[in-house]
Design a protein around this nucleic acid. Structure first.
Lengths: 143, 143
DNA sequence: TTGCATGCAAAGTTTTTGCATTAAG
DNA sequence: CTTAATGCAAAAACTTTGCATGCAA
């Protein structure tokens, strides 16, 4: 159940937001790319469909999409400025290529045992986690 | 084997770096706090031992400590500006209190099975991961 | 037509850089 | 003494805000 640009566009409309060419361009940019994008990179790609789109609009659109949980941040060791379309609506994590920044999702993280252990050991009542893997994607391994 | 301010000071000297009062103040600030600190917060705490220390110096010291792998970044869902002294020298992860920002470390992450599975499923050659847990620490749970 | 969205400009944040001065070793 | 570190100022990078105009619904 992939979230395409059009599907998200529908969600936006349902939620009462206007579907401007700029927003659509941002959606297309996010949907079309398999790696994570910084706001600036999104603007670059969005320019294809909406020339001259402002970085400001990209930031505002990302804010909107974040609120609606349609986009998620990618945390890389050296910075956390990347964004991806949140493709599966369920809980998931990222596998990020350290060479080309491609991102693949996975769902089964099997951390509940660990969370229970942490509660026992530290007394923390765990309510969330961040898990990302880094490595080389198949293409970058051979190259 | 906790990394105290003095222990790190020794490492700095060994590596040929000068041990200035400012650097020592940053080390003390980091060593003394159990929660993660932003550069600005570090500057605030460091002022106790080195009044008037510049934010710039804090940044430069953090850069130095990062290179030597003596501090590590804390990734929170809403931003990644926090730093902690890297207390265990081994591989470890963070449990972060979402209320008071206290950080506790843990070591056993048991992700190698998962990494193998990911290799099979995605073809990614995993060489690292980021894992942080969020929740309420014992004190914040009762409050 | 109406109100939300855009984009400019401008300001607010965060982080880095250049350079003269200072101080550690 | 010598070299590296500090701190100011200034700039660069990143993000948010105010306001007039424009456009989706």
């Amino acid at each position: 159940m992939k979230l395409t640009a059009n599907r998200i566009a529908g969600i936006l409309r349902q939620e009462g937001y206007k579907l401007t060419p700029q927003r659509h361009a941002v959606l297309k940019a996010l949907a079309a790319s398999s790696d994570y994008l910084t706001p600036e990179a999104i603007r670059g790609k969005a320019c294809i469909h909406s020339p001259g789109i402002g970085l400001i609009t990209v930031y505002r659109t990302l804010g909107l999409l974040s609120e609606l949980n349609l986009v998620c941040r990618v945390h890389a060791p050296d910075g956390c400025r990347g964004y991806m379309m949140r493709r599966p609506t369920e809980h998931h994590h990222h596998v990020v290529c350290s060479n080309c920044s491609k991102v693949v999702d996975f769902k089964r993280c099997e951390l509940s045992d660990l969370e229970q252990k942490l509660l026992d050991e530290t007394g923390f009542d765990i309510n969330g986690h961040l898990l990302e893997f880094y490595g080389l994607c198949p293409e970058c391994r051979v190259a």
